[in-house]
Design a protein around this nucleic acid. Structure first.
Lengths: 357, 357
DNA sequence: TTGTAGGCGTTATCAT
DNA sequence: ATGATAACGCCTACAA
């Protein structure tokens, strides 16, 4: 009998027609009307841990389901001041080429009901424009893997937007960061290569704007100097395969011959360098020339390369960055923390590490 | 003289103190007060093409700047019903491993002041949960590269959320999509290989849930049949390097020998297959065994491989997807469009294409 | 060109 | 446990 149905103020069809006529969205008022409760009751039903009776909850949820109601995040964000949005700011040269990072970040955040707004900079120049857009979206926090000026970092603080830097060092400020110690990694690599008796080094550097590249180069140079070896001939690359290939040609050209070892600022360039050495110059790697990289990307493990490299624990780092940020979002004034990871040496097959043949 | 300054209702310091005391955000009212105009005047200044006098505009902007005011996207979205947010829904297996796609999408959208909310599914199972989150965020549109049921597609329509499928076919519905004709690509590859006299084919297939893999396999199988060749022995892989390596071993095992050609459902598996063939089985590729892939990823062009493959125009496709979606956002009821791209054959060095030696 | 007033859809407060 | 009411910060007629 119709009498046994719950006291609906209107039928589903009526309400749907009304919404359509006014061409608006389904709101909690519509659900309330259908369920025969107040709007605030509906709101409470969608808030975990609110006090609602079993019966009310069931009727509200049923009404919501039949109207396809979903809370409006914009309206919620307006009043709660939480958007459940996290900005992830990357740059073309480095960010998306390491899919692990975004994958892990995305996983961690969606586990807590938060989502990523992606800001991918073609060039790190336009960052101020990007930040303006970040502020508009009222993000709850940001993970930034591009270079930030002290002023820009300060703006995050002024706006109380938790910030975690990823693999970016900012010398003069205490700011939350997850980094891999690039200089230490570079020194470790040099130590290994030098111990094996390599004397004549060359380096294929990364782009000038990359702090990781700078630190790797600095580590290489200082460690070599400590060991009494000459500073390496260094040519600039931009982290891609082609510049590894170009780099080797330039080195052989300017060096007037083949050095003992080429250290590349990342794996991709190392792979380009190795391919060119083997195929174009017919050089035995590592027999005649040792080549090493940094990162530990997937391709570095391929059978054709088995690259000798310093592997960054990117997965753990991404996880840590997410955890750090989530902590800051929960507790606004936690003390700045800096998590430093070490790269691990990967004993590959592209650098001679034993005594010379 | 102080008299020459604009008639500010309050000093900057006063207003900042007020805001801080009430611990709220800087609003357009604060800017209005500082600039000595109404709140709606401020609002108009931030709306491109609104009618504001030069003088007012200048004073408002100056006030906004000195207060670090930024419009609140949530509040704006509430009234305009535009969030300037686009959902991009990918899955682990396919999405982030092709960085070009996200890079280009991000570029195109940010050019129009829109931004990407990233939804990266660990598994395509949890998609309903993901969609619920998409609805909450009131996105202006979505680009989806995972499998969607007809019901799920219908829900986009019901909610008037423009949808563009990326490399996903949905047979029974007319829905906006940008796809690459995988079956045609597969047929083209088979035609080439067969013309060179390959007789005994094998295939390393993609994961079952990938429509692209299904279509590639179907194209391979049907074209082979048309040419009077046996259906290939097919083993299942999951699109990664390791499964290419495993795949070849399994093929040789089950085949009881080495086939003439192995067609892999993507480049990454092809590379794994080639490495294993050359290093573990000491097979000459392409002399003794031809290997081909699909996609045209960056590594496929590396000197060590020069992979024979069918290259998808991912860059153009991403561009088209963004353009299509932007068109739909501008004009809600544009007619469904399906843009089909063709893969181009890349005459690499891993498959014999001339007469047998 | 400018100001006034109302509403977007939700959560939070405070009664009841 | 539930309901009325006041924000949240902005846009947009409409009137001036």
């Amino acid at each position: 009998m119709t009498k046994s149905t719950p006291p609906l103020s209107n039928t589903i069809a009526d309400i749907k027609a009304l919404i359509h006529r006014e061409s608006r969205r389904v709101t909690s008022y519509d659900v309330a009307m259908l369920a025969g409760v107040s709007q605030s009751a509906v709101s409470r039903c969608f808030k975990p841990g609110a006090s609602v009776s079993k019966a009310t909850y069931a009727r509200v949820m049923e009404a919501a389901r039949s109207l396809d109601y979903t809370p409006n995040a914009a309206a919620r964000s307006l009043i709660t001041r939480r958007s459940n949005l996290v900005a992830v700011i990357l740059s073309d040269t480095v960010g998306l080429n390491y899919p692990d990072i975004l994958t892990e970040l995305s996983r961690q955040f969606s586990l807590r009901g938060m989502h990523i707004i992606l800001f991918n900079l073609p060039t790190e120049a336009g960052i101020d424009q990007t930040l303006a857009e970040v502020w508009q979206h009222q993000v709850d926090g940001a993970i930034v893997a591009v270079r930030l000026s002290a002023a820009q970092v300060a703006e995050f603080e002024r706006r109380s937007v938790p910030l975690v830097l990823f693999n970016r060092n900012l010398a003069d400020r205490t700011v939350n960061a997850v980094v891999c110690d690039q200089e230490e990694a570079a020194r470790a690599m040099v130590t290994r290569l030098a111990a094996a008796g390599h004397k004549r080094f060359a380096m294929i550097d990364g782009p000038a704007h990359s702090t990781a590249a700078q630190q790797r180069k600095h580590g290489v140079a200082t460690r070599l100097a400590e060991l009494g070896l000459a500073l390496p001939l260094s040519v600039e690359g931009n982290f891609d395969y082609a510049s590894g290939a170009r780099g080797l040609r330039e080195i052989i050209d300017r060096f007037g011959g083949v050095p003992d070892a080429v250290i590349c600022a990342n794996d991709l360039m190392a792979i380009g360098c190795i391919d060119t050495a083997r195929h174009d110059f017919r050089l035995d790697v590592p027999g005649r020339l040792s080549v090493a990289g940094f990162d530990g990307i997937a391709a570095s493990r391929w059978i054709s390369y088995k690259l000798t490299t310093m592997r960054q624990p990117l997965h753990s780092m991404a996880q840590a960055a997410a955890a750090l940020l989530l902590g800051l979002v929960a507790d606004g004034n936690a003390t700045p923390e800096r998590r430093v990871y070490s790269a691990t040496f990967v004993d590959g097959a592209t650098a001679r590490l034993g005594p010379p043949a």
